[in-house]
Structure formats: structure tokens, C-alpha cells
Design a protein around this nucleic acid. Structure first.
Lengths: 192, 192
DNA sequence: TATAAATGAGTGAGTACTCATATTATAGTT
DNA sequence: AACTATAATATGAGTACTCACTCATTTATA
């Protein structure tokens, strides 16, 4: 290899894209401005990402990885189901609040029409341990056995996101929302 | 007025926009194609909606009204809290399944950057009775009193939408998801 | 008959992507 | 260690194209 690509430039482009996507939406953020903000020539953007759609797909995978890392670092593998569930709950919310742009872009990407099936599949990879935990909860008779696994996972995601959204509009109640949100989830899926 | 605008044309344009937005996303649906699909000249689109953004905002309000109607028709005002909550739950899900395009577009509009604050506010208007019901639930000691009202509303919306999304991928389990989803919500927000 | 809607070719402002040229990190040679 | 050849990246003006919106003209209705 005569001259290697620079991971720094790649990251700068992804960061710039995140910022502009969050501020204006996917379609209204031109590659010319993304590259300018990243401090590279427009052509350079296209040596790192063949098309704008490819950039968007790469960004999605990157963000999902970050979120997965945030949720799973220090994961209390030995803890009971409640402890583990609470860990990922707290981490997810913390990440969403600490990275509002990334969080917002993720929401935009998910409803966009440009994500490939491969990207969507790749995006679920970081969350295998989460699936395991849900299965543990059901087999260990902690979760209600009449609830489908996929509904529990979905309910988790839906409630975290609702909680983060609320927090964004009333940051002073962050802790309240975080705790109450979890209580709704826990009471909702566990046996009485 | 020499020649009145036609409600039919206006609806045709909104319908065409809904279809194309759902298929390709807001940005990739040109006004030229929307008008063609609606069976009017492109100029006509602009006599009904001054700009594309205005069209999008109008569509949002229209869809929210439809959803509100669907949820609130035959609303059992005299029923107990569970009956009333279940009513709007079922109607919301039924509407989402019966109108997948509308439902999808609504999701896109909510994360888009073109909705004005006025539109967002107007969008909540059809749901005043829902708010009342939540307050009833808290005052009547049916819902847990430590949960913030706004979190309960948000949790409702989040769980319905999660349920509809799941149903879209596995229609055969529609009833199961509908019932189980509601159980999660109900167990989550009521006193033990 | 007056007034407004309907039409669709035209316009100007962008936009994603290209490509000829300049630059530079690397591997090989001495 | 210094030099060179090589092959890749970096650059940004240029290109082909698309799109939201306009406007002169035609058509319909009160």
C-alpha cells in the first residue's frame, strides 16, 4: 500500500456528518458541507465512502457499535436478571443523554429508506447478550411466561427511548424519569 | 370567489404525498411526481400548498386528526379506566395496521426537521381526552401515584408503536401482540 | 363577465459525484 | 540513513442532473 487511508479523516467525516444530520436532517446535509466541516476536500469524502448512502450506512453501524459498547461495558454477567437489565437500561439512557446528536441521528437513520438489510442486521449484533438475558428471564420464571421474547425486547427499547425523549425536554427530572421508566418496564414484564 | 378550490384535489395531493413519502422518504419524493400521481399539474400543488414544507406540515396535521378520530370514535366515556385505556389502545393499533403507509409517514414526519412548533402543538390537540383519562387514573388511585403523568402518556405511545411495529413483521401474531402489549402497559402503570 | 383556479414548460439554485493533477507515505535499493 | 520509484490518497473546479417553484396562458365557475 503506497499511502494508507487515515482513520482520523474517516472519523472526522463521520463526526461532521453526525453533526449536520442532527441539525438539518439527512437530505439537507450536502456532501460539500460535510467535507468542509470535516476539514477535507469533497473528493476525499468519496475515497472513504463510495456514495453518500454508503456513508449513511457506515455511520449507522458505527453508532450502533458505540451504543452497544456503552451498554455492555462493565456488564454484570454474574448478576441477577434485574441487576443486568437495570445495567443496560441505565447505560442506554446515559449514552442517549450524553450523545444527543448521535441519538437523534440514529432515530433518523432508522426511519430512512437508505439503510440496507445488511446494515440493519449488523446493527443488532452488539446486542446478543441482551437477547440472552431476556431468555434467562423467561426460563428463570422471572418474566411472565406468556410474553413473547421479541415483545419484551421491543418494549425495553421503546420504553428507554421514551424515557430519553422525555429527559431531553425536562433534564431536571432525569433521575426521576430514569427510575420510573424502569419501574414501568419491570412491573410490566415480571410475574406478579 | 370566482372558482373555488377543490377539496378533492387537495385530498388527492395529500394521498399521493402519503404514498410516495412512505415508499421513498420525504426528500426523495419530488413535487413533480406527487402531482402526477395526484392527477394534477405541478403548479396546482402550489396553489393548495405554498411550499413543499407547508404540504408536509399539513399532511402531519391531517394524519394526526385521522388517528385521533380513529382512537376516539365510540370512546366509552362512562367506562372505567381500564376499559377506556384498552379502547384507545385497540383503536390505535387497528389504525396503524389498517393504514401502514400513513403510520409510516407519521413516524418519518416526527423525526424530520420541517415540522413547525405550531404543527407539533396542533398534533396533540385530538388527544385531550386521553390526557384526561390518565389524570383520572392517577386521581382514582388506579395508576401508581409515583409515576409522572407525562411518562405514562409517553409509555403508552411507545408501547403501542412497538406493538404495531412487531405486528408489521409477524401479522399472524397480531392478536397475541395486541393483548400482551397491553398487559405490559397495564401491569407497568397500575398499583400492585 | 370578473375572478380565481389549472396548466406545464421554463428557470435558477443547488447537489452528488468525477477526474486531471498534485501530494505523500511506504517499500525497496544502495 | 538517504534516496528513489511507486502506488495510493488528497484536491477542488467542473459536470450532468434534479428539484422546488414561477408565470404567461388557458379554463372553469360564481
Amino acid at each position: 500500500m503506497a499511502r494508507p487511508k487515515s482513520q482520523d479523516k474517516r472519523n472526522a467525516i463521520l463526526d461532521a456528518a453526525t453533526q449536520l444530520f442532527a441539525e438539518r436532517g439527512l437530505a439537507a446535509a450536502p456532501t460539500s458541507e460535510i467535507s468542509k466541516l470535516a476539514g477535507v476536500a469533497e473528493g476525499t469524502l468519496f475515497t472513504y465512502f463510495g456514495t453518500k448512502d454508503e456513508l449513511i450506512n457506515s455511520l449507522y453501524r458505527e453508532l450502533k457499535l458505540e451504543l452497544g459498547d456503552a451498554m455492555m461495558s462493565d456488564f454484570p454477567r454474574k448478576g441477577n436478571v434485574r441487576t443486568r437489565l437495570r445495567h443496560v437500561w441505565d447505560r442506554y439512557i446515559r449514552w442517549g443523554i450524553a450523545n444527543p446528536r448521535q441519538y437523534k441521528v440514529l432515530a433518523q437513520l432508522l426511519v430512512s429508506e437508505v439503510l440496507t438489510k445488511e446494515s440493519r442486521d449488523a446493527g443488532t449484533a452488539p446486542f446478543v447478550e441482551f437477547q440472552t438475558m431476556v431468555r434467562d428471564g423467561i426460563e428463570g420464571r422471572i418474566f411472565r411466561s406468556d410474553l413473547p421474547v421479541e415483545l419484551i425486547s421491543k418494549a425495553f427499547a421503546a420504553l428507554v427511548e421514551a424515557t430519553i425523549d422525555l429527559t431531553a425536554s425536562k433534564p431536571s427530572k432525569t433521575n426521576k424519569y430514569r427510575d420510573s421508566g424502569f419501574e414501568i418496564l419491570w412491573a410490566g414484564i415480571t410475574r406478579r
